[in-house]
Nucleic acid binder design. Structure first.
Lengths: 223, 223
DNA sequence: ATACTCCATATTGTATACATTATGCCAACC
DNA sequence: GGTTGGCATAATGTATACAATATGGAGTAT
């Protein structure tokens, strides 16, 4: 499950993670400028690694660069979010179908394990972990599709979803169990090698999560 | 049709384009290191904009960064290219289907116009222009899908395709007309609002171009 | 009051110097 | 002979100084 290299090797990488976390924890609000000087004071490093980190974050569109004005947190519009989820539904469906077609036994086991972990976290009501394992589920399925380019594309889309999610924690507490049930349905179809069913369940799952993302929008536009 | 801002506003942008062209024209071969010092001498600017430009190019995966070693041109493997085309087939198919569903009359006209231009360029045997207009065709269809996120994703995949293409100009001269015929079939389906047909034709079109990309591989691995 | 110009200030863009790490060669040793 | 260690060199990583540009407000003319 190695996700974080054990020791940070460059200041740029460290800055990248810290800035990303600052964004994900809502320290920077959508639409707000991310000033280089502010970050140098906050992180205690020079502008160079800050700028590089921001370029890295630009790759995941967690910030957008505007020439000679700086970087800012993007403000998603409703139509953008819809476009986003439409694409994601198609790709998650595709990944699930391919996983049903050619996942190795090990990969199927991996998904099952992730699902079990999510189950436990859910029972313990450890929500940060629940989110973590749910993300992991999508990654595992993408991996099992046997298409690394697809997996990477989905990973990038997923980080953006997390950005939306920051905006929309308006206490939907019945969602987690629904999500978990849908994940299990997708897994069952993959395990049973039912490509069509896997695709349909995965697509539906994404579409179901769209309203939650949209619900966070109004709070943003009113600031 | 505005694609290039009329005047370059920053050195970084200028460097970005020049380096990209150097890669696309084969000045840097796959697997080769792209040294910052070499580029500063070649372009006559300092390292800072060079590094920023390389980060930009990294976003399109025209170069890959290796920590404390620098940037290099990636060497695609056969399975990567296959994964790449599999994803692209799915997305181009999806885009064509959506375009058939909701392209505006203006967008349909735009595609028709691009196709006509490609036709003329083909008749004149102006191959660089043919390639240009063919790329334009895919962009126009993606635009007509009504999903900007999808269009952008496809645009990035397309730049990578162009990278493969650099490797594989082994004189396939019957391809252009085949390509053009397939493009017209896709357009006809879109114009007739036949979603399923549009998707199928677009998918087939991508799959047809896979062998050409693979044919360029052997020449790379033998160097 | 409104719009417009000009200027001070803040911010990003670029160059460059210095620090740190990787690379390759050569010699010494087993 | 092959391997290892260290050193010179070259490359990237980071900090900082300076340049160019954008921003906002004061003041003035209409």
């Amino acid at each position: 499950m190695e996700s974080t290299p054990l020791q940070v090797r460059t200041v740029t990488e460290a800055a990248y993670r810290q800035i990303r976390d600052l964004i994900l924890t809502g320290h920077f609000a959508p639409g707000q400028w991310v000033r280089e000087r502010e970050l140098t004071e906050l992180l205690g490093v020079s502008r160079t690694p800050i700028r590089e980190a921001l370029r890295l974050l630009e790759q995941e569109q967690m910030v957008v660069a505007e020439s000679r004005k700086g970087f800012r947190i993007p403000v998603p519009t409703e139509s953008e979010i819809r476009a986003f989820y439409e694409l994601r539904a198609e790709l998650e469906g595709f990944a699930a179908a391919k996983a049903a077609h050619r996942a190795t036994p090990e990969q199927v086991g991996e998904i099952r394990w992730v699902l079990a972990e999510a189950d436990e976290a859910l029972a313990r009501e450890e929500w940060p972990q629940v989110i973590q394992w749910n993300n992991q589920f999508h990654q595992a399925v993408a991996q099992a599709s046997g298409n690394a380019v697809l997996a990477q594309t989905l990973a990038k889309l997923q980080t953006q979803v997390n950005l939306f999610r920051v905006l929309s924690w308006t206490g939907h507490r019945e969602r987690p169990s629904t999500t978990h049930r849908q994940h299990r349905e997708i897994f069952n179809a993959i395990e049973a090698r039912q490509e069509g069913t896997a695709r349909a369940r995965a697509e539906d799952h994404i579409w179901d999560s769209l309203p939650l993302a949209l619900s966070g929008l109004s709070s943003v536009h009113h600031q």
